[in-house]
């Protein structure tokens, strides 16, 4: 059995851990509200862009002359996997879930004989991927210096990706991030962002007499890179909200566990103290009787 002094030390250390997890939990819940609001504010634009894309997509036939972002490179060999993770830890299995989803996809593609390359956003996912696929990482976008990931970052990521695509460094790009369902549920998802998939079904039927300025093709050409940017921006925002949600949940659990541990340790501490007092008393009484 541990001595009284040791027990006291352990209780103190668990208490200070609990303070940290509690603080982190409160910070996360405050940040979550902000991140969630940002993610919601970005939805109208994404929604409308999708509608416009859908109505354009139904007009323009895919041919050899259509932009590469839409028609693809004609090959399906090199796949780029973009993994968006967070920069900070203390958020439970958030990052490892994203990485796991990306890895499953990578294995699947490799089993099918494809070449897999990686492009990484965020610090936490980086270490794992670099360790596993040291020679296959093509790029890394550093977000550690930023307080929040905004549209400008999404733009520079998209610009870099499109430049890589134009140089023929990959044929298909998949983006992996965590979708925010609620503070308790974050779902790692992967979707193809290049070549751009034209959303279907939502196209308004009454736009037969739509006029275009300049013309459909040119508008589409301008729209496609923007679509990639928006997809990435949306992913970054979802990720930010998910990270805070995951962090909040994980820290809530940690705080509760620390509380339980403190209770258990306190009981052991009190018992031990009581036992020590009893032993001491018996010794004194026995000593007095012997006289």
């Amino acid at each position: 059995m541990a001595s009284l002094k040791e027990l006291k030390g352990r209780i103190a250390s668990v208490k200070s851990t609990q303070k940290i997890t509690k603080a982190k939990q409160m910070v996360a819940s405050a940040k979550l509200r902000k991140a969630q609001a940002a993610a919601e504010a970005a939805r109208p634009y994404a929604h409308r862009l999708e509608r416009v894309m859908a109505s354009l997509g139904s007009k323009v036939a895919i041919s050899d002359s259509s932009p590469k972002l839409l028609a693809g490179t004609g090959k399906d060999q090199v796949h780029l996997i973009i993994v968006a993770s967070s920069d900070r830890g203390l958020c439970g299995a958030f990052n490892s879930n994203i990485v796991k989803a990306a890895r499953v996809k990578a294995r699947e593609l490799e089993a099918a004989g494809k070449t897999v390359r990686f492009y990484l956003v965020g610090r936490k996912g980086r270490a794992v991927i670099v360790r596993e696929y040291p020679k296959q990482v093509d790029g890394y976008f550093d977000t550690t210096a930023l307080r929040s990931q905004g549209f400008a970052e999404a733009q520079s990521i998209a610009a870099e990706l499109i430049a890589m695509y134009e140089r023929g460094q990959f044929d298909v790009a998949h983006l992996f991030y965590s979708k925010f369902r609620s503070a308790l549920v974050q779902e790692p998802v992967g979707k193809q962002i290049i070549p751009v998939a034209i959303p279907t079904g939502d196209a308004p039927a009454t736009n037969a007499a739509m006029e275009y300025e300049p013309d459909e093709e040119e508008i589409l050409t301008e729209l496609l890179p923007r679509n990639v940017t928006i997809q990435i921006f949306g992913a970054l925002l979802e990720n930010a909200a998910s990270e805070q949600g995951a962090s909040m949940t994980a820290m809530d659990n940690a705080t509760r566990n620390a509380g339980e541990l403190i209770n258990d340790l306190t009981i052991v501490y009190n018992r031990t103290r009581q036992a020590a007092i009893t032993t001491e008393l018996i010794e004194i009484i026995a000593g007095a009787e012997a006289l």
């Binding site: 940002a38 504010a41 970005a42 109208p44 634009y45 994404a46 409308r48 905004g150 549209f151 999404a154 940017t229 928006i230 921006f233």
Partner: peptide, 9 residues
């Protein structure tokens, strides 16, 4: 009339 940016409505 609606004016939307990626960041907000």
């Amino acid at each position: 009339f609606e004016l939307v940016t990626p960041e907000k409505l």
